[in-house]
Each structure stands twice: as C-alpha cells, then as structure tokens.
Design a protein around this nucleic acid. Sequence first.
DNA 1: GTGAAAGCGCTAACAT
DNA 2: ATGTTAGCGCTTTCAC
Lengths: 334, 334
Amino acid sequence: MATIKDVARLAEVSTATVSRVLNGNGYVHLETKERVAKAIQQLNYRPNDVARSLYKGRSKMIALFVPDIMNPFFPELARAVEDMAKQHEYTFVLCNTDDDPEKEIAYIEALKQKSLDGIVVVSSTMSGAYMKDFDLPVIALDRILHKDLSSVTVNNKEGALQAVEYLKEIGCKRIAHIAGPEHVSNAKQRLNGYLDAVKQEDWFKYSYVEQGEYHFEEAKQATQRLLEKHPEIDGLFVANDLMGVGALKAAEALGIRVPEDLSIIAFDGITLGETTTPTLTTMAQPIYKIGARAAEMLIHQIEQIEQEKQDEEFKVTLVERDSTRNRREIHDNN
Amino acid sequence: MATIKDVARLAEVSTATVSRVLNGNGYVHLETKERVAKAIQQLNYRPNDVARSLYKGRSKMIALFVPDIMNPFFPELARAVEDMAKQHEYTFVLCNTDDDPEKEIAYIEALKQKSLDGIVVVSSTMSGAYMKDFDLPVIALDRILHKDLSSVTVNNKEGALQAVEYLKEIGCKRIAHIAGPEHVSNAKQRLNGYLDAVKQEDWFKYSYVEQGEYHFEEAKQATQRLLEKHPEIDGLFVANDLMGVGALKAAEALGIRVPEDLSIIAFDGITLGETTTPTLTTMAQPIYKIGARAAEMLIHQIEQIEQEKQDEEFKVTLVERDSTRNRREIHDNN
DNA sequence: GTGAAAGCGCTAACAT
DNA sequence: ATGTTAGCGCTTTCAC
C-alpha cells in the first residue's frame, strides 16, 4: 500500500503538505492541493489509520458490551449501534460478556491497549465504581449501571403499570407476574410497576410473583409452578418477551388456553413475539432507537460535543397481539 | 498510561530489554528479567497495541461479515467467531453487509486502513474476483464464494435429500419445497437435494417449488400460494428455519393442521424452531461449530500455520420435533 | 504557503 | 546479555 511519502514524492511536495490536504488543515495553495489530490488518486492512496491512532491516541473504534448476542433482544440493539458507528466512521467491536465482571474487565483492558474510544454497555454486574473510575467514555444502555454514568433506558415502571392496567381493562381478575433477575435494574422497575398496580387489590398475594431470570426455560418452569399453585390466575404480566414465550409454552403444556383462559402480556417488542402461536402481546421498546441514541451520545461524548452526564428515557408502547386481544372481545360480549 | 520507556527507566535497562522480556525473545539475564517484571507490575504497564500494529503491519483484529445479524441464524455464528477470536487474543469486529456488495467493499477498505488481519465472510453477492484479488486472508462461511477461497459449509444437498426421504418415510405422498434465493449457493444445493429426491416420482410437478427468499414473510405468502394451488400437498421441505416458521404460520392461517394434515421440515436448527407451536422439525447444522472452525482456519491462515486452501464440510442432523413427529405415529398406527 | 523534523510507542537489526 | 538506533506512517509545531 502506498504511503504518504509516496504521495509526497509524486506530487513533489513534503509529507506535511499532503497531510494538510488530507485533513483540510492549514493553508495550502489551490494549485498544489490539486496536484496532491491527483497523486492521491493516482496511487489510490488511503491513510494508515494505525499510524494516525498512534499519534492521536484515539482509534475511531467503539465497542458494545452485551450479556449475550444470542438473546434475541440484542441483535437489533447491536445493529443500531453498528449503523451509527459506521455513519460516523467508527469501527464497531462487539463483546459478549455473559454478564461476567471478569470478562468485562478483561475486554476493557484489551480494548484500551488498542486505544478504543468508548463503550456502550448493557450490564448489570459491572461494578459501577470500576466503570466510573476508568477514563473511557461510557454510556449505559437498557440498564442503569451507576448514577454518574450517562444512560439510555425506557420507562420500565410506568410501562409495567400500563401492562397490568391493560390486563385489568380487558377483564382479568387475578393477575400474576413472572419477574426478571433481582439484580437487574429494569427487572426491578418492572416488578415495582406490577406491584404498584396490584398491591391494593384484595386478591393480591406475594406468591403471585415468580422468578424467571430472563430465561426461556426458567420462565416456562416458573409459569408452570405458578399456574399449578394458583389456577385462578387469568392474567399474566411477564417481564420480557423471551420469558413470555416460555409462559406461552407452559400454558400450552398445561392445557390452558391463551387467551381464552389466560391473557399474557410481556415486555420488549422483539420479533420473536410475532412468530409464536398465539402471537404475543407486549409493551414494545423502540429497540433500534435506543441503541442508536446510545451510540450517538457516546460519539458526542468522545468528540466533546456533549460533556455533561445525561439520562434519556424512551417510552414503551402497547402492541396488542393474540395472546390477549381476543380476550377483550370475549369480555365486551359479556 | 505508562509506556515502555517508563518501565525501562524504572528497571534501569533499555527499552530493548523490556521488549525482550515482554515478548520472550532473545537472551536476558534472569535477574534483570525479574527487575523488569517488577517494574511492569509496579507501573501496571500494558503494551500499546497500536504501536505494535504500526510496526508489524498487523492488528490482531478479525472481522465477521454477515448479511444481517437480526436474522436469528447469525448470532450463534457470531458468538462462535468471537469466542474463538478472544481465545487467540484477537479483537472481533462485526459487520452487517445487507448482502450489498458496495457495503462489503466499503467495509473492507475501511478495515484495511486499520490493518485488519482477516475476514470470515458470509456472503453471496461479494464478487468472488474482488475477494480473491485483495490480499487479506478470507474464509467463506455457510456459502461458497469463489473456488480459490477456503470455506466451511455443511452437506446441504445431502441434508435436503435426507429431509425429503424422512418425509416420505413418515408417509407423505406429495412433497413440496419452499426454496431460498437462487443466487445463494446453499439454497441452490438444498433445492437440488429436494429435486433429486422427488424428480422421478410420478406425482412431481415443478410448481411444487415456490420461492421464499429466506425471509419469514415471503415464505409465509409463498406457502399460502402453494397450499391454495395444491391442496394435495401433505409434506413440505422448507429451505431454512426462518421460512419454516413462516410456513407454519401460513398453514395456521389456512386452517391446515400441522402435523396432522401437513408435515413440515426445515433446515438450520436455530432456537426459534423450539419456540413455535408446533415446534419445528429440522435438519440441524452444527452452527457454533462451523463458526468456530471458520474462525480457527482464518487465524491459522493469518499465522501461517496453514497456507493452502481447504474446504471443510460438516454434516447436518435430523432433529425431530412436533411439526412432523406425531405424523409418524399416525402412519404407524395405520 | 511550504518544508524539516520531532515524536506517538513499539520492535528488531546491529553493535558491543 | 544488553544497549543504540532506525523506522513503522502519520500529524504538527516551528522555521522560513
């Protein structure tokens, strides 16, 4: 590959001048500029980003940390971050952390050696203190990591409340909840939203809440336990779609009809919910948008456009599908 | 961050000696080695990979090109490539190409400027000539790109044949096919496997093949068309799982029971097939394995362990689920 | 307006 | 066994 020296030689100027043309810095005579441009073209010259990075101490690379890309919620997020990165001419590095703090730290160390410019992080385990102490720009996505870190999230609590209110509205009389992991901030918020909506109902019992760990299989089992213990349940708010599908499967295994005997609403709005039978009603997050916004905030922070910490909260919207929709009609006809 | 100079100064040696200790090259007295090690530890020194890359012209970075990470087949592949990259201390870059040759080329150009070491490519559009001409190590994954490029694939044709034979075995008398895009090599192979299995059957018609483009929605519509035109169809081989789910949905919409009236088998073995109702029988690829193997071959090629071009083919295995399994019992009971 | 030269942090001859 | 030094390709002061 041609270097800046080759271009300089061909254009009969110094490398400094070529650099000026390249970066649009400093004064350079129009005529020489054109000579340089021609040489660049002729040699099909592309500046070496590594040399640039070495000098500048910055790499034009950002990373996205996700617990596991195989969880169907994250590919769309990844896609958004990548698109935004590309748009700003950043390279996109994807890191699966398995929510393991050691892996997270190992990745950070490795990427720092490459002069990584910043990270969008989906994590619940990473020690907020650690994240905050080390000097890279960081945006927390989907979950709050530390109060000093900028974040992009959705109105989890309010969304959960709306979900439960919706179940009430379509006629559910006993509404239970399959919760996400306790240490994940958004899971806790969704649980709180549920509790706010039901705690003063005379039928409410704490055993109406089961742990699903944000996993398909755990959620399926949890739902099965719940429905066996409490056959009176006729409405279920599940903390995410992946678990919602598990709940659907549990009902199917027990011979409970959805939505005739049981209405199910979940949270996230991933495509998976459109492929099940019945399709899954959900509180949909603007997944791509929040990913894109997080990436944009990160890049602004890197480029010093925004300095101060900020938290952005997007709104979720109800998407009615078959795991509840028919139920309303049944109710209306009564 | 501390540099090699700081370490040298603290250990009272030259930077060359530090470098030797760092890389385990050349002779260095045990005592001085320990002094250097102590200094490194004391300063919490980490070598700057950018400087290294500049000198070596290599970056310890590899990329994976996929058409679209939101297609559920690719996250597992990505996960495998990333894991293998990490294991060999490579950084992992993910690129969504949308199967657009211009994007592919733009990515390649950008990554070359960063001294990227190699690429694992899932692509059907990238001009083989282009890929072959430019000097980076490349492994084609899932699809064959060019005869001179190493590749990792599965036995698509044979697997397709097995799928159709299986349908026959469980009693299907009229078997149709939803095909993938014609320009994708594995889709063509699966189609050929189907044709081999059915072309000498007296009932076979070419209108038993419909185009599904590897998309959920297109496949759903294609299946609907097919079943309306040919109500005699009692077996369906679909070229991938994503389309298989579409086919399931189409049958549901038409009131055709699966597997009682129609048996459906697809191809890939993605998790999505376990979440549908009924669950989807499939010819499962060892997805993680082929991704890991492709990454490993790439790294070997980069590190000159393997030089010559090689093609590896993995085998698919039948995974019986509910979209066909019950049917055999029905058949056996007859 | 342009060039010479230092330096980003590291590695590998080459010298001793 | 260890140090000196050139150089990877670029940017940016500082002269002119």
